[in-house]
Write a protein that binds this DNA or RNA. Structure first.
Length: 392
DNA sequence: GGCATTTGACCAAT
DNA sequence: ATTGGTCAAATGCC
């Protein structure tokens, strides 16, 4: 047993060391203008893979006893704020036993951040495809907004113990941090929740919300995965593209019509960027089966939003980005960390020019999904990545 | 009336 | 003692 832990540790160390070495190589490449795009891309991919492996090894090692969900989408929210970090124990008592009410479930979970786009008076994040019942709300120390507690609506009829917590972000009220705990075992699970063995990508569509929306109802399209890369292929044009967002399960296929939309409002020196990729779904997708309200003739807007946080080469690239000056040596690739959950790689090659379209694919854990065309668009000092395509 | 949400109280963990 | 998570009675909504 100690042996196993030992070996595991060595493996983790190995992956991290390798990642570091690859990062160094990448740095070298970035300083060499002649370095090929492919080489850089290759290195980035390798780095991500290394880290991905290390992370999943750590997760495996630290979450014994807790049902494993995805192949790692665990984004532990901060370590510093009170209480969610630690080494939680699960005190499991049968919920059917009335005399011993269970308190405090495991605190292990995975968190995602969801940005509500266009911020129009949304008081809560949009639906994520599951039916939840709120069972509590509590003010949290240091948090401006209360935390809400939800459990699966099938807790009693199907003994589904999945829960989630929703916490509005202090800094950015349009961002909700949603912590999921437990795995759905109810009947609604198979529609959306992948089996533990095929964790890759989840597509959650928001149900259209109730208030009269300013435009079309919005659907949140979110990719829940640890590593998600967006790669461009060398396609010159695609006219206007048809987009297919596919997911590994169910052959789900979502034809999208993408329209231009981007929000780069929070771009500033401290390097927070928020590209928003939106699209209109004009056709009913297989996912629509999960959503009562979706109708074929209606249009929905999946919003793929992400927050780019740090030192991505993307951010670095954007610094000198003055679209009026010619960009001699702007790096052609960009590594982006989105929501701390996945990575994106934009390759906005001649991104000084507007209107460039490229075919992009998502690659996640070895699987590649077509997404569609991406159009580079500039506005002032900002670069937008926009998808445009039309539904079938 | 039935169901979901709200909210103060309670409990467990720290 | 303090805090986060849950319970359950009260309340609200359809």
């Amino acid at each position: 047993m100690e042996n196993m832990e030992d070996r595991e540790q060595k493996n983790i160390l190995h992956e991290l060391t390798q990642g570091r070495e690859l990062a160094r190589q990448l740095l070298t490449h970035l300083n060499v203008p002649s370095s090929s795009h492919e080489a850089r891309e290759f290195l980035v991919t390798k780095i991500l893979t290394s880290h991905e492996k290390a992370i999943s090894m750590l997760q495996r090692g630290s979450s014994v006893g807790e049902p494993q969900h995805t192949g790692g989408t665990v984004l532990r929210m901060s370590e510093s704020p009170p209480s969610l970090a630690g080494g939680p124990r699960i005190k499991d008592s049968d919920p059917e036993h009335g005399d011993a009410p269970r308190k405090r479930k495991a605190v292990a979970g995975w968190t995602q951040q969801v940005r509500v786009s266009a911020g129009v008076g949304l008081e809560e994040p949009l639906d994520d495809g599951y039916s939840w019942r709120k069972y509590g709300q509590k003010g949290i120390l240091g948090a401006k907004y209360p935390r809400s507690y939800y459990r699966c609506i099938h807790r009693h009829d199907q003994s589904c113990l999945a829960t989630k917590q929703v916490q509005r972000s202090n800094e950015d009220p349009t961002v909700f941090e949603i912590t999921y705990r437990g795995t759905h075992t109810c009947a609604q699970a198979p529609h959306i929740n992948p089996p533990p063995t095929s964790p890759e990508i989840l597509l959650h569509f928001q149900a259209p919300h109730i208030n009269p929306p300013p435009i079309s109802p919005e659907i949140l399209l979110h990719f829940q995965t640890t590593t998600l890369e967006v790669k461009t292929e060398n396609l010159d044009t695609q006219g206007q593209g048809d987009v297919a967002v596919t997911s590994p399960h169910q052959d789900a296929f979502v034809p999208c019509h993408l329209f231009q939309k981007e929000e780069f409002d929070d771009m500033n020196e401290d390097k927070k960027y928020t590209p928003v990729v939106s699209s209109l779904i004009t056709t009913k997708s297989s996912y629509a089966d999960n959503l009562d309200d979706i109708k074929e003739d209606k249009k929905y807007t999946p919003v793929f939003s992400s927050r780019i946080t740090t030192k991505s080469s993307y951010a670095d690239n954007l610094d000198p980005l003055d679209l009026n000056a010619d960009p001699p040596d702007i790096a052609k690739e960009a590594l982006v960390q989105c929501d701390g959950i996945y990575h994106k790689e934009f390759l906005p090659e001649p991104f000084a020019e507007e209107g460039i379209e490229k075919q992009i694919t998502l690659e996640s854990q070895g699987m590649v999904f077509d997404v569609g065309t991406v159009e580079m668009k500039s506005s002032g000092e900002k670069i937008g990545v926009e998808f445009e395509a039309s539904g079938q």
